[in-house]
Amino acid sequence: MSLLDLLFGSKPKSATIAKERLQLIIARERSGAPGVPDFLPQLQQELIQVISKYVPVDRDDIKVALEKQGNFEVLEVNIVLSEPGRQAGD
């Protein structure tokens, strides 16, 4: 560590980043969830089928994503419904 670093504080440590990344990925791999992204396409497909029964919906109108926020994993499903006017016209 150089004198400048000592005086002005140091940059974020890469070892800390490494530890956080490892804790995340290893916890995920140990939990036995077989590669979470694996089921996302199928989930999206089935959601489209279910929702289409009630509302006309396009494949691109459904977005499924998995995010890590702090200690939680958030499954985000975003469905954009068509405008009512258009729907009535169908």
Partner: peptide, 17 residues
Amino acid sequence: RVEDGEMLSYKDVQEIL
């Protein structure tokens, strides 16, 4: 390198594994 924050410490590795 551990002291400089560039390498995982043995405690980190043990804690993870």
